[in-house]
Design a protein around this nucleic acid. Structure first.
Lengths: 248, 248
DNA sequence: TCGAATTTGTGCGTATGTATC
DNA sequence: GGATACATACGCACAAATTCG
């Protein structure tokens, strides 16, 4: 037997998916059907389908069936700053979405808390210092596509109109504009990029399957000192990150 | 049974690994032992260990046993350009390694070929145009840590001393210096970052386990036109990418 | 050098649990 | 509530790699 049975079945299905005989959203034949069609046991069909799940071709919904995933087109997120003259767009995210002909919006909630060690380090604070933490869910055409958690030192913003990032006169204006409003000039954004598998709650809010890969951007805005830092969660099947670096 | 048995066993082992009761290099109990200890079947222990392997906690050596992996410390790759005055270091990679107190070297091999569609697009060529393709294996202290495949348009370099990137007077000098030698000025580096799971041959040369995650940097050096493009493969358990972006 | 024991990898037939429709 | 589908578990078998006497 040159090919194991479960690989043969997987190849068969993969072929049907890539050449369109099985379209996104279609239900893949159930294990019983697959097993009978190929004259093998249930267990072999399980392994075949498991392989396709791990490859991201299909998504298994318990009790319902296994469905062909539609791979969203990968869009580009421009991470450089002197990019577009931002025009009407009041935020980097909205500008990126406008460039793609989509409407970018977000939901957020803020609360005061204390800085965990990693965040204290990034903001040049001491662990336990008070910070404003804001969680964002970014939506493109109403669909959640990106997550972010932002931290700002309360010693900077307490008592000012920009203390709550998404309320008051500067709501939705972006970090740079808000900081300028309290006489802090942002001169630098540092972005540290890593990647990992998605967490359960992230998968849940983003509608991504478990096991999918996300990139994490640790972004820090600085002037004379770090002013804000954020962890931005970006699913790789939705976005790629574009950086432009001047040479010399 | 709230938790499936294989998850319970995996959690148990993972806990022992993170709190040090199982140290890097230690052998994890064999699946027979695990099955007996937890009162489950052989097959369940297999699934538990398979999960830990896919998470990168352990490494299974067929015929020998399953061992706790030591996670290399994550190092930072500085992707900005006006970073360090590069000093003696003749290349970005070597400079990064020197900054970490390690010696950076590489192996490479070049060959002429024709541009596949994606590469032609990045170099503003037509599919099938002749290009010089060079594959690199980057070593830190003799250990393979990074891969790269570079493409250059042969219409630019053919007949010049820099046609072969790693031979002749400009061997190892880096793309910017080599292009300057043929009167081409690099003014911009564009880097598009994505991530995916590692491929079998990549895992093999990098000594990474299958299933681990890598970032891919599609880097293009441009002047008046695209001069060189490369796919750089970076394992996330070894490196994070740092970009610095001027604001305003 | 050889072979036996151990260990992981893989394949598969079957049974039961549980979510969905 | 019943039928269907996926998830998990058990038991068995054998191949390949490794270890060690």
């Amino acid at each position: 037997m040159a090919q194991p049975a479960y690989l043969r079945i997987a190849d068969n299905l993969r072929q049907q998916i890539v050449d369109g005989r099985l379209a996104p959203g279609d239900r893949v034949p159930s294990r019983h059907q697959l097993a009978r069609e190929h004259g093998v046991s249930d267990r072999v069909a399980v392994e075949a389908v498991r392989l396709l799940v791990s490859e991201g071709y299909v998504e298994a919904r318990s009790g319902s069936g296994t469905y062909v995933r539609q791979r969203p087109q990968v869009k580009r997120l421009t991470r450089s700053w002197y990019r577009q003259a931002r025009g009407r767009a009041s935020s980097p995210f909205r500008a990126d979405m406008e460039a793609q002909g989509r409407t970018g919006t977000w939901r957020s909630s803020s609360e005061t808390t204390t800085a965990p060690p990693a965040i204290a380090d990034r903001l040049h604070l001491t662990m336990g210092d008070p910070v404003m933490r804001t969680r964002y869910i970014f939506l493109a055409d109403e669909q959640p596509v990106m997550l972010s958690t932002s931290w700002e030192p309360l010693e900077l913003t307490r008592g000012t109109p920009v203390m709550l990032p998404e309320e008051g006169p500067y709501a939705g204006a972006g970090v740079v504009a808000r900081m300028r409003a309290i006489e802090q000039t942002v001169t630098l954004a540092s972005e540290v990029v890593t990647a990992r598998t998605i967490l359960a709650d992230e998968a849940d809010t983003l509608g991504e399957p478990m096991g999918s890969i996300i990139m994490v951007i640790q972004r820090t805005y600085s002037g004379d000192r770090p002013l804000e830092t954020a962890d931005i969660v970006v699913p790789v099947d939705r976005y790629e990150l574009a950086y432009v670096i001047p040479v010399d």
